[in-house]
Design a protein around this nucleic acid. Sequence first.
RNA 1: GGGAGUUUAGCUCAGCUGGGAGAGCAUCUGCCUUACAAGCAGGCGGUCGUAGGUUCGAGCCCUACAAUUCCCACCA
Length: 867
Amino acid sequence: MFDKKTYEPQEFEEKIYKEWEEKKYFSAKIDKNKKPFCIIMPPPNVTSQAHIGHALDMTYQDILTRFKRMQGYSALWLPGADHAALATEHKLVEKLAKEGKTKEGIGREEFDKEAWAWYNFYGNRIMTQFKTLGFSADWDRYRFTMDEKSTKAVLEAFIKLYNKGLIYRGTRQTHWCIHCKSVISDDEVVYSDEKGGMWHIKYPFADGSGHIVVATTRPETLFGDTAVAVNPRDKRYKNIVGKMLKLPLTDREIPVIADDYVECEFGTGMVKITPAHDPNDYEVGKRHNLELISVIDKEGKMTSASGKDFVGLSLLEARAKVEEELKKQGLLEKVEPYTHSVGHCERCKTAIEPMITEQWFVKMDELVKPAIKVVKDGELKIHPKRFDKNYFHWLENIQDWCISRQIWTGHRIPIYYCDKCKHIMAAKSMPEKCEKCGHTHLTQDSDVLDTWFSSALWPFSTLGWPDKTEELEYFYPTNVLVTGYDILTQWATKMVYMGFECAGKTPFRNCLIHGLVRDEIGRKMSKSLGNGVDPLEVSEKYGADALRIALIKDMALGLDSRFSMTKVDNARAFINKIWNASKFISLHSQDVDILPINKTKKETKDKWILTKLSNIIKTVTNNLEKFDVGMALSNIYNFAWNEFCDWYIELCKPAIYKGGEDKQNTVSILAYVFDNILKVLHPFIPFVTEYIYKNLKPLENNAESIMISSFPTTFSVSSYKEEFAMQDKVVEAIKLIRNAKNEAKIASNVKSDVYYGDIESLGSNASEIEKLALVNLTSEKGDGKVVYSPLGEFVLLDEKKDKEELIKELEAEIKRVQFEVDRSEKMLSNPRFVEKAPASLVETEKNKLEVNQKTLLNLNSKLNSLK
RNA sequence: GGGAGUUUAGCUCAGCUGGGAGAGCAUCUGCCUUACAAGCAGGCGGUCGUAGGUUCGAGCCCUACAAUUCCCACCA
């Protein structure tokens, strides 16, 4: 089984996963005898393929789920996908266009069919991709934001909020995408700097007494102007407030008004006010009761309000024509190049148009209160804590949520209008007649809901809400939401306030925030840069386990990390190390009857590694409980490689080669420690640990899968204290001797003679030192380089030294120890240190001083005898 | 404009409630030692962004400044 020199993940990952699935290890049962643990998977968009960001996010969740499952919790990781209305509609329309069709052409019903085919195909694809990365979600519970149960939850929530007056229809200034032909929310607008111009336009006074100049980046909107504003404190313009202006290219007159919104220093200090097409102007208009004149329609064309010469023109055409006309009439003072920030549709990148439209909104002020409180009270903890601030800031400044979208993909708004009396009703399905006038012809609102409406319900709709299910009772509130800081505010906040409103409780008790995966030089991964890493490609080549380590190891909570193939290489090297440790154990356990750990005879080295093992189990467990997954992995990674492989296995070799009982005991303990390491590693690297667990002979009698074995717990090691300290000294001595050999330029494959005073006192440690430092210990004195170790002096005999050199070395050592003594003395002679520092610290300092003073005396007398 | 993060070895990053600066990569030296050269052993390398302050003691706490990244608001 372990005859291969290196580990080849391709051979077993797929097979192992299939077995896990067949044996239903992922399925979580409601078990009153077990504590529940639940993570709801943030649903990836059906439009996307698994990318590196998903891989990171899901790996965190998988590690936590596997850990808790092994700890004996009934651990549910509930998977699902999001219909991503705008994004999906965008892609569907593209697809139809390729087939020469339009959505209007095929109609709403046919479009829905297309959408469902898409959901099923792509939803399945991304979940299949997740499986190759080893994720242990309960696939039988797979949910989709548009499925029947989710739809039921959406209707229930909408009607509940509507009846409470928390959902209302309003006419507002909204962001309109002329490409998607839908309103989009503030969150869906992305700003970027764009080069444009600043048009300085003359507006003549109506009474013929000259003109003023306003500066604008959008001259084509001048048809919608209903005023020009100046700052009330602006002395330059004090006397013109209230005067009328002749609006160029029209026969309308507009007033000069005063409003604080205007900044005196900017432009000419005069702003044309277009309430229908600018959010700020809209507010100014409200304050001054100005008329709203829409001059741009939903297609991005000029309306009839712009006059017969301009109606029907596109924005760009209109802009050119306005410029031309103004020039002709001598009303254009100048056009300056100007760069400013322009909002774009997140999906299609089209510049958005601020526009007055009628939309559905969720009223926020009352809704968010429990969401703020729950974090303030510490009942919902955000990790790391500093993200609290972002969370509060967002909720405290929140605007009413626009939930209607003028597209076809998504949950249709459950609002019905009476064709006769225009009465509005909210209902789960078409009412038979108008509740007010009894008319039987009703029409459903044509809009659909914002995608986030259904994802806001995700933590409880997936558990069966609004029905009172056992799942909801048992698993809700869930334990932890894992997500990137980029959607903490956009999504997590929505779930919390909807959780309180609908399910009466916080949807999760912890929120784990991780950073973004960036490329090797710290850039965001993006299609346009072409610097994206495909997790599936990496997994195929190096194994899912290696990818998982590369993503998680050393990642600090909430911080971005850089992904590189070097990390993957290191990860693979680590797994290969584990693989080879298996090979070693396999090789030497062929003819050995493995003893249970409590029947083994334990030597110093064994008590040493067992102490370290117990400590590392504690550390890893603590870090996982704190959600510091990256740190937990580093802990066990370093232990497995440095302590176990590099030291313990090497320390075991003398006993193993000796054979007999020594070998039997050693191999038994070796297998025990390794078994524990595998279990601790399993949540991080599930595949290779499972493969080894199942195929390594000394572990044969264990549970049928490492997945359902118990996570190791600490054990008492207090009686090993002395041996632990001794082995540490031996290790230190070996390092120092190696170091000395290296400095003496002795090749590491050359065995050196080394003098040591009391070889017998070392016991079996003597052979360890001989083997690991590659030396021959002798009690015959001789000259050479002296190694000062915690076990006393060793003398490297190969290197003959003259007296002068010895004195030099001795003096160097004296200097070093003297420094230590001085340091301790200085600290201890400070009364405030002795007084205020913790007693244990003072104590260790005293001890150190004592030991060092003795050493110093020793060294000095030696120096004197040489001189 | 408001808020948050980051700044530690050449590079990527750890560093606990304040108690002697760490890892990996890179580089250099020596080794194919019967688990592993995808490896082993060892070396070099740091005024912890700057300046103050608190403290017996500061990479860690406080203040200011600088560089850099991100979020929110938004620029007629």
